[in-house]
Write a protein that binds this DNA or RNA. Structure first.
Lengths: 210, 210, 210, 210
DNA sequence: CATGAATGAGTCTTCATTCAT
DNA sequence: AATGAATGAAGACTCATTCAT
């Protein structure tokens, strides 16, 4: 029984991982169930057997992925003391989570692009709770006189949007590397760029600056 | 003859506008040629006659849309004198262009999400030139001692990403208005928010601050 | 325009006829849209283009077929004067209609077998109106003292059921011809049997007899 | 060993009963092996283990069901003395058997509708023997001068067809009760109708009547 | 130019059947 | 015997694209 349960769980995980990849690469409409099955190394019918139809599969992927973002963020913020630390932890947590779930930015961006057509409420709750937490930190910093009055929602969108755009523009930056270095010179960094540090610098600069 | 040319031009424009909308709403894979024809009020075969297949249609939409972004930006930067003015003009130009072409953020985000699969080089050239211009302005400000050392590429991604996320999250913000106000309180602004001013504040704050 | 309309109409008719055959032979569940398209000599997608999905196609077939039964019956009864003539016309009309639409008995029987799962209300109205008409005739005959008191609904079920069973048992009677003549002897008639006359004899015998 | 045999037998019976129901409700093509297994409360693979594939299962159901009809009929006719009694016993036996095996009419009707595609010869032998018996009775009645010359095969089809149509039309009569009472008035009876008595009246009326 | 009809290659989904444990 | 997992072959339906008029 335990052996069977383990086997089942492994199959489901393989399916969900493959699905996350394929959905990220091609979007919901472009994703082919066949392709997901192939990449997961399972028979296509097994997806329907273990999970359900394409939409159910997509929802499972969303829940799993976004749930992880929220729980990591909650953890990170809980371990930070001062507002400044919380802001740093916030940027760092987001950055690390997106690093470890490279399918997240594409999926999030497509969801937004389609008006959140398939986004289940559970996921939305997670996302809103993140905004709530960082807003709270910014507000507290303002009350303590450490921070200037900055709109935390706009700030959050710039951070998450900037991170997403950076991550997803990677293939383009590689493909058009010569074009870019010709037109934009040394200003566009190589992989070596410490993205999170730069974002942190901009955010804290705006919050604390002159 | 001229009358015919005008008619033809009008038809093509109607098709391109309809296509921009549909591609923005549903993405390339989700877009249906039938739907585009319907929304343009033309017979489906006319799309093939006037423009070509779905891919060609998509490329035309991309070129038309992104070309406009670049030319407006060039214009805006040319009329700004100081580095600070240039940064303000940059934010304002981007914001206004996206305001007038609401299909742009979704299309851009989906393109990035798919690794720029269909992005033609012409478009890429436009995008890179924008980055080049703003980088130049930032660098000049730094040399003048007005600006701190901020990575202009990361800054640009935060601006364009923030704008895109803000625009495209509108339907979600409406749909989950109650959920949002419950969890994130007054911190999430209503439509009244002056988005561009907030972004400007953050960017200039980071560039000039403390 | 007229040429196109004619062409369209012809295609639709070919589809409906083929569908009636295939639904009769194999039932709704057993029918293959591919097979219907083949038999109609049209591309499968044309069925969806002209009519709709499998269910819509089935409904169309039912309406067309049963509608014909009802209108022929109304016609036949209108031209009969006395109750006895009406009963004769009733049997004859049913018999002839089923003769000309050999797919009707199988379809009706399967519908009944499945509890009328797909039977649209329009069809039911037709069927009920037939029962109403013959009931009226039987009642009138009873009031005139020509007929004994016979339940017209049961009588109708025996007539329509008997006709259906006779028509649909034809292939079995052929396949097991030797078995039948061995066990049931001369009592089971050949094709030469005048079915309608026999039914008429039984019905009128019961109505007027003894 | 005997305990095991009993267990096995019970399982097989549960499967056959469930299968009879499901085949009756949805036909062979519409029946799902999963559904049969569920309704029987056994694992799907057990059906293949104990009985065989879907077709074998269907054949088993047919044999079991129709075999019962024939043996009950033989019994009933054996206990009837006069031709009239035999006709009464015939109607009554058929009616009671169908009452106790409500899945029989749907299955029989579907078989006929499909030309007896899956009907095994054994079953056909049973059915023919019934016709033989009643034909014999009718013929004897005619020779004794009690009966008029009525074709016993047509009569049988009307009886079995009428019974089948009555039984299977029950759900439709319930669903469209208001429609029916509006159009066909009091003529269509409630459940209280004594169907067998009515059929008997019609059959004996035709056989003996003036 | 314009339109409705036609086509063929998918794409999702289901299901009878078998396998491993 | 019994079970859950696995498989492969359809089958319904869609859609980009082309054709005839």
């Amino acid at each position: 029984m335990t052996a069977q349960k383990t086997r089942r769980h492994a199959t489901v995980q393989r399916i969900l991982n493959a699905a996350a990849q394929v959905f990220a690469e091609t979007g919901y409409e472009g994703a082919r169930v066949d392709r997901i099955a192939n990449r997961a190394g399972v028979n296509k019918a097994m997806i329907y057997y273990h999970i359900g139809d394409k939409k159910a599969l997509y929802t499972r992927v969303l829940q799993k992925s976004f749930g992880d973002v929220a729980s990591r963020m909650a953890d990170a913020l809980a371990h930070a003391a001062t507002p400044q630390d919380k802001v740093r932890a916030y940027v760092r947590s987001l950055g690390q989570t997106l690093e470890q779930h490279p399918h997240l930015p594409p999926i999030m961006m497509r969801e937004l692009a389609s008006g959140g057509r398939y986004l289940p409420e559970v996921v939305m709750t997670d996302l809103v709770s993140i905004i709530g937490s960082i807003s709270e930190a910014v507000e507290k910093g303002r009350q303590h006189g450490e921070f200037k009055s900055i709109d935390p929602f706009v700030m959050h969108l710039m951070v998450i949007g900037g991170l997403s755009y950076f991550k997803t523009s990677d293939p383009l930056r590689r493909r058009y590397a010569t074009l870019i270095s010709a037109k934009a010179g040394r200003l566009v960094q190589e992989d070596g760029i410490d993205l999170l540090q730069e974002i942190e610098k901009i955010v804290l600069g705006a919050l604390t600056g002159g």
